[in-house]
């Protein structure tokens, strides 16, 4: 396996708070890495730095693009960065409102990325949008409905369809199932996992829920106070945690 994303010595401070303190991570092609840790440990900050929505104070991030060029993300020109975000990357937000246009129909939301990369045939856009809405298990009859009348789980599935339609290679997810009922959450995770496998996606997923992490991730990164305290294969980390903080995390979930 080959690396697709490398981050070295990422730092990000908010005032006196070290949200990311000298973090280095690597992601391999087709791998799902989970970032876990308690609230405020810096998971979202790290994800936002990696995906380019936050500029770190220091460090280095490189990405291997479709044409096999290593891109230095922190010095990449803005147009190329935004182009990556629309084509090779995807970002699934915890709150679907951050990833969807609520005033635009489900079909318009799903088709937006196609139109952004130059699709100009309505019937073709609609056919692909129909295919994707069905792929995320929403009845195609809902294609012209606005997402504002969808349930939370449907909105999240719509967000995933909107992101995957252009066949990205790398997906960032921040608590994609947070705020959903347990049963809805389980179905959504199933769906995400099968799509990730089907499309061979590389994923970085942030969650504070170790059950989600176990289900989704091949490898885990455990964070505390802006630092990585432990990293390893998911089963290893959860079944035989080495660091005392990880032990605490794991035992507290067992108590629930």
């Amino acid at each position: 396996m080959e690396q697709i994303l490398k981050a070295k010595a990422i730092n990000k401070k908010f005032g006196d708070v070290y949200a990311c303190n000298n973090l280095s991570i690597e992601l391999y092609t087709g791998e799902v890495v989970g970032i876990v840790g308690e609230s405020g440990s810096g998971k979202s900050t790290l994800l936002n730095c990696l995906s380019g929505s936050l500029v770190p104070d220091g460090g280095n991030i490189t990405y291997l693009d479709r044409d096999n060029n290593w891109l230095d993300l922190l010095s990449l020109p803005e147009p190329r960065k935004r182009n990556l975000l629309r084509t090779e990357w995807a970002f699934v937000h915890q709150n679907p409102r951050d990833g969807l246009r609520m005033a635009v129909s489900a079909g318009g939301n799903i088709g937006e990325r196609l139109m952004a990369i130059g699709y100009r045939n309505y019937s073709q856009i609609r056919a692909e949008a129909t295919e994707w809405i069905e792929k995320v298990e929403i009845d195609a009859i809902r294609l012209d409905d606005k997402p504002s009348i969808f349930s939370g789980g449907m909105q999240q599935r719509l967000q995933i369809a909107k992101n995957l339609i252009t066949k990205p290679r790398l997906i960032f997810m921040d608590e994609p199932t947070g705020g959903l009922d347990v049963s809805v959450q389980a179905r959504l995770l199933d769906l995400i996992r099968s799509l990730v496998r089907e499309l061979g996606l590389s994923v970085i997923i942030v969650t504070h829920d170790l059950a989600v992490a176990r289900f989704m991730a091949n490898r885990l990164i455990v964070m505390k106070n802006g630092k990585i305290v432990e990293t390893g294969l998911t089963d290893q980390v959860l079944d035989d945690p080495q660091h005392s903080y990880t032990q605490l995390l794991v035992s507290s979930i067992l108590k629930v």
């Binding site: 935004r82 079909g107 318009g108 088709g111 937006e112 139109m115 952004a116 100009r120 309505y122």
Partner: peptide, 11 residues
């Protein structure tokens, strides 16, 4: 980045 203009026509 004008994809959005076509989203309006799509709608």
């Amino acid at each position: 980045e004008y994809g959005l203009m076509h989203v309006k026509l799509y709608e």
